[in-house]
Nucleic acid binder design. Sequence first.
DNA 1: CTGAAAGCGCTTACAG
DNA 2: CTGAAAGCGCTTACAG
Lengths: 332, 332
Amino acid sequence: MVTQEDIAKILNISRTTVARALNGSENIKKETKEKILKLCDELGYVKNPISTSLATKKQKKIFAFLIQSKNKYYSMELIKGLKKAEKEFEFYGYKIEIIETNIDHPLDQLNQLQNIMKEERPDGIIIVPLLKEEIKNIQLRYPKTFFITLDVGIDESITYVGVDYFKSGRMAADILMNVMSKGKKVLVLDTKDDRISSELYLKGFLSRINEEKKDIIVGPIYDDDLKNNALDIIKKNITKDIEGIYSSRFLADIIKKTKDLQLNFKVVGNGMSEQIYNLILNKNMIATVVEPWEEEGYAVGKIMFNYLYKNDTYNGKKYIVESKIVFKENLR
Amino acid sequence: MVTQEDIAKILNISRTTVARALNGSENIKKETKEKILKLCDELGYVKNPISTSLATKKQKKIFAFLIQSKNKYYSMELIKGLKKAEKEFEFYGYKIEIIETNIDHPLDQLNQLQNIMKEERPDGIIIVPLLKEEIKNIQLRYPKTFFITLDVGIDESITYVGVDYFKSGRMAADILMNVMSKGKKVLVLDTKDDRISSELYLKGFLSRINEEKKDIIVGPIYDDDLKNNALDIIKKNITKDIEGIYSSRFLADIIKKTKDLQLNFKVVGNGMSEQIYNLILNKNMIATVVEPWEEEGYAVGKIMFNYLYKNDTYNGKKYIVESKIVFKENLR
DNA sequence: CTGAAAGCGCTTACAG
DNA sequence: CTGAAAGCGCTTACAG
C-alpha cells in the first residue's frame, strides 16, 4: 500500500505538502500540487480513510430532513435504517441529525433547511424534498455540501436514493394477474390524491395490466373520499365476474369493509402497515409488494458515509432499493 | 468517549497495562487486570476498532471453505458477496482466502482444513461443512479460531449463517396454491437425491400444502434418474385435473421437456439458474423463490469481520438470510 | 508557499 | 509483572 510518506520521499518534499495537495488546500503552489497529484495517480495512491478518521477530530455535520406523513411506519423504518448506519460507523464519529417536518407544510421544511445551511454549514444533507425548485436553488448555493435526495428526485445532478413505486405497482399487477381466474375482472378504485407513491403505484399497476389483459380492468373509478365512499362504489359497480380489487390507497380499509359484506375479493396490494399485515395473516389478502424502508434508510446513511468519509461517489448517482414481495408465508 | 488513557489515569497506571488487560495478555497480575476490567465496564469503555486496526499491522488470516457443486451460480454469487465484504473493509487489511473443494470429495475438504489449521493457525474459518463430526473435532482443538459454518449447521455452539430452504419450499407452495385454479391438482416429482437443499425444499413445500389442501397433491413420485425419466412419469400420471407441477430438482429441465408436449403447467419453483431465468421471462414459469447467495456471502464476510475486528458477537449465533420471491416483473 | 511536530487511540517490542 | 516509547497513516495548527 502506498502512503503519503512514500509520495513525499519520492518527490523529496514533506508529508505535509503531500497532504495539502490531496486535501485541496489553498496554500500550495500549483505546480507542486499537480506534480503530487500526478504521482499519486500513477502509483494508484488511495487515502486510508481509517487514518483520516483518526486524525480528524472535527465531526462532520449531517442532517436528514424527513417528512411526517400519515404512514408512521414509513419514517419509523427509515429512521431505524439511518440509526443502523450511524451505529455501524460510530467510531468514525458518524452522526446524523434527523429533522422531521410535516408533509403538508412544505415551507417548514424549506425554512428549516435554510436555517441549517446558514448556521451550520453542514457537510451532508439527506432530504425528502418537498419544494423541489427552492431546494434545488439552495443546493446550488452551497456546492460544498453533499446533497442526497431521498424518495423524490430533483434532477440528474443530485445523488438520489429511492424506491421504484411504479415498478412496485407493476409487480402487484403481475402477481394479481397470476392469481386471478380466467375471464374474471378486477375493480380498480382510487382517490385523486396526489401523493407521489400512490399515484405511481397505480400507474405502474395499470401499465402492467394494460400490456396484457386490458379488458380485465373495471375502472379506475376515482373518488375524493374513497375511504368513506368505497363501499357504495363497490356496491354500485359489482358484477359476477369481478374477482379482484385494487387501490393504491386505503386498500386495507376497503378490504376490511368488504369483508363484512362477505365479498371475498382476491387482493394483491402495495405497501405495508399493521392492517395489511393482519389482512395477509388472516388470508383476506394474498400478497403485497413492499418498499423496505429500513433498508432504504440504511442505504442512504451508508452512501452519505462513503462519500464523506471514503470519497466514494459510487458509479451512478442513482440508487434504487428493491421492493419485496410478501405472501403469508414470508410475512415473518 | 472513554479511552484507555482515561482508564489509566484514573487508576494511576500506564496505558500499556490497560491495553494488556483488555487484550488478554498473560503478563499481568490478576488483581490489576480485574481492577481495570471492572472500571472499563463501569465507564462503558469500548475499544475503538479504528485505532486498533491502525496499530495492528499483522493481517488476520481467514479462510473460506466453499464447495464446488453442479450449481455454478451458487459459489459464484457467494464469492461475489465475500469479495464485496473484503473490499468494504480493505483498509483494515481484511482478506479472505477462498478454498473450493468438490462436494463429492468431502475428505479433500477435511484434509485441506487440517493442513491450514496446522500450518497457518488462522484467525477465522468460514466453512460449508461436509464431514460434520470431523470438522467439529477440529473446531474443538483450535478454540482460538473463530468458526462460522455456512449453509449447513453443525451445532448450536458454532455461529451459523445460512438460508432457510424449508421455508423457501413453503413459500413456493404458498404462491402455487394461490395461482392454482379451484379443484386442480399438482404433480410432485422428486429424486431420492440427498442434497440438503432439495430435500428441504420438498419437505417445506409438502408441509405447507398438507396444512391446507392435502388432497391436491399427486405424488410425490420418486425416481432416481428424474432428469431423464420425468417425461415418462408425467405421461403415466397425467390427468385432466393436474394443473401444477413441482420438483425441488430438475424442475427447469422438466418444464422444458413438457413445453414440447404442449403441457402448460402452472409452475412455481425454488432456486435460480439461467434456465429458470429464461423460463420466467418467457412465462413458462410463474415464479421462483430464490436464496440470495451474494447477500449470504456478504453477510458471512461481514460477520467474520465484525467478530475479528470489532469484537462483535451479535446477539444470536444464527443468522438467516431471507429468500426472495421472483415473478417476471422483478426478474430484473 | 512549505515543513517540523503534535496528536488521533490503539499495539507491541524492549527494558527493567 | 509494569512502563516508556515508537509507530500505524493521516490532519492541522504553528512557525517561517
